[in-house]
Design a protein around this nucleic acid. Structure first.
Lengths: 155, 155
DNA sequence: ATTGGGAATGAAAACCATTACCATTAGGAG
DNA sequence: CTCCTAATGGTAATGGTTTTCATTCCCAAT
């Protein structure tokens, strides 16, 4: 289960080692599934996907691993209002391809978008800096989501 | 259970009527608790608070009413990562005192902040406009949250 | 290679916030 | 005041996520 392009060891190997965590089959499988999917999956979806290739996998391991990955910063966890969490690869060391979500409150559909003006990014950074100083709060991450009605649900 | 200042009928009465919903004791109690608390409460906290004054209240009603209020736009629903939802009064017709949250991933503490609102508002509006046009998505609401470590948890 | 021991796993049971069900109660228009 | 229907509340069910615990496996030290 190679990295993004099939060449070289996946970029996450180093991170695992340096954190003192073991690199196991299930963990690689889960990362691989997330890597290939490249969109938000639920724990169960990941479970089923891994199961196709590694039938011995247990749901428990899925949850445990995902929690670990989130805590390591390799994976983001989202809540779109239906009541299952969604998980998404944080896109590597260089790929700071942060993207955001439009959530339809009608049908639950989620649209990813990356068109976020550069000014906005700048502002976000400044805000972050300001808040860090004022509240002595070390910000590691942020969440931005828009809610509304998609094309179909407006009618 | 009077309005914000004890004079005049609470500002939400009109909204209820115009939506065709009945104005009942439990609903007023719940709004009253949210109004007095003025910070994010869980369903159970609201339940216990209402119970002190109106012991016949049922948890089911709490949930049902909160859902209604959220859907009416009178109340916002948040998820801070512990696994219960939090509810907060949307601050009336004039009080556009929008605020955002800093969530500590260490201890779960939540800090409200109102700084940088005006700058953010402008960009938010532009972003919103762009997204609406591009995806034909009618945005009704948004969520911004910062995650990190609070003062205590950094040590 | 082998091994020892702590980390990781998986099956099943427990958890627990939220919902569904349904018989009963009460708002408010006429 | 009455009636109709929305609203309520107790209880049981739901279902995603966690906990428990015996077993297995990674891997550093032999």
């Amino acid at each position: 289960m190679p990295g993004r392009n099939g060449k070289g060891p996946p970029w996450w190997h180093g991170k695992f080692r340096s954190c003192g965590y073991r690199l196991t089959i299930p963990r690689e499988m889960i990362l691989d599934v997330l890597n290939k999917a490249a969109k938000h999956l639920s724990a169960e979806e990941i479970y089923l996907a891994v199961q196709k290739v590694y039938s011995a996998i247990g749901l428990t391991t899925i949850y445990r691993t995902l929690e670990l990955l989130v805590q390591m910063g390799l994976v983001f966890k989202f809540d779109f209002g239906d009541k299952r969490s969604r998980y998404e690869l944080a896109d590597g060391p260089k790929g700071i391809r942060h993207h955001y979500h439009l959530v339809c409150t009608g049908c639950g559909r989620v649209i990813d978008y990356t068109d976020f003006i550069d000014e906005a990014k700048e502002l976000l950074l400044q805000t972050q800096k300001g808040l860090t100083k004022k509240y002595n709060f070390k910000i590691t991450n942020h969440l931005i989501q828009f809610y509304g009605l998609c094309e179909k649900c407006q009618k």
